[in-house]
Amino acid sequence: MVAQAFIVDLNKPLVFQVGNLGEAYQEWVHQPIVCKEGPRFFASEFWEFLTRTVWWVIPLIWLPVVCWFTSMSFRMGHSLPQVSVMVISGIFVWTLLEYTLHRFLFHIKTESYWGNTIHYLLHGCHHKHPMDGLRLVFPPAATAVLCVPFWNLAKLISTPSTAPALFGGGLLGYVMYDVTHYYLHHGQPSKEVPRNLKRYHLNHHFRIQNKGFGITSSLWDKVFGTLPQSKLSEKNR
């Protein structure tokens, strides 16, 4: 007797359902539902609240933190040009982290109950409901936890006086990434560069989901060979 395949009930909290999909999870999560109303994650109001974040909370919370860390390097004797280089370096490091996390963590293949559940919370929910405006940016509580290892990484790869500005630059890169990500889904860009970036990202969601991992730019996709082919190139093959 063949076991009946599990079916997710979209009218019930999703998080503790999706793990039951097993091997079918990957196919299910990459079939997007285009709707501005997001699904319910948890039965608990407290945990549900923690999963929902309006986009402007990100700069409101984290830009003062960026300023604080950057000012630490000033107070330790570095000049404005020196701190500027550190901040720019931090932003550059973030772009590589952005690409690496998106490609190797957010798109990891899972099939176990807890693997599917954690993946759904991290990124699967975004691919299933790409227009959910309250789950496009990373919840501040989760970001605060992740800041600890990234701060330790900054201290490991730099000196005590340069680490704060380097970390501040990385955090600024994250803020730029999150607000850009929100804009690419819900904004209506009129200029060519953001319009192309929006098209590039939506291509990742709706056409080739295993390529095009860059959000703020396609730089690392070009470097590591994950740049998706254009439709014109595919037609000429």
Rank of each mutant, 00 (worst) to 15 (best):
T143W: 05
I61P: 02
Y183V: 07
K128C: 02
V83E: 05
V15F: 09
T216H: 00
E27W: 07
T53F: 02
E98I: 06
V34I: 15
H205N: 10
H123E: 05
K211S: 05
K109A: 12
F69D: 08
L227R: 05
K211H: 03
W28G: 07
P64V: 08
V137A: 10
Q4P: 03
N20K: 15
G173P: 13
P194Q: 07
P32I: 11
F49E: 02
A43R: 14
A141D: 07
S158T: 15
Y99W: 03
I7D: 09
P140M: 09
V54Q: 13
V54P: 00
I61M: 13
L50P: 00
S73H: 02
G19S: 11
E23I: 05
L96K: 04
L219M: 07
S217G: 01
E37P: 01
T95A: 01
L202S: 05
L202K: 12
Y174A: 04
P228Y: 01
W220E: 00
K231W: 11
C35N: 15
W68F: 15
K109F: 12
Q82H: 13
G22P: 00
L105Y: 01
V15R: 11
P39M: 09
L80E: 11
A144V: 14
A163S: 14
E98V: 08
Y177T: 05
H30R: 13
F46P: 00
W151S: 06
R40A: 12
P64Y: 07
L134F: 10
G124S: 09
G22V: 09
H123Q: 11
S158W: 11
G168P: 00
K231A: 12
S112F: 03
T100V: 12
M176T: 06
L97G: 03
T70K: 14
G133H: 11
C147R: 03
R40T: 15
L166D: 04
D178T: 08
V85E: 08
T226A: 02
T100M: 03
P140N: 14
F206L: 12
H126P: 02
S44Y: 04
S44D: 10
M131P: 01
L134D: 15
T162N: 02
P149H: 10
Q229C: 04
V223D: 00
Y200V: 13
S217A: 09
R52Y: 05
N196T: 05
A43Q: 13
I118P: 03
A163Y: 06
H78S: 13
Y120K: 10
V145I: 15
M176Q: 07
L101I: 15
S233W: 09
F41D: 05
V8D: 01
P140D: 04
T95R: 06
L122E: 07
W94T: 07
L21N: 10
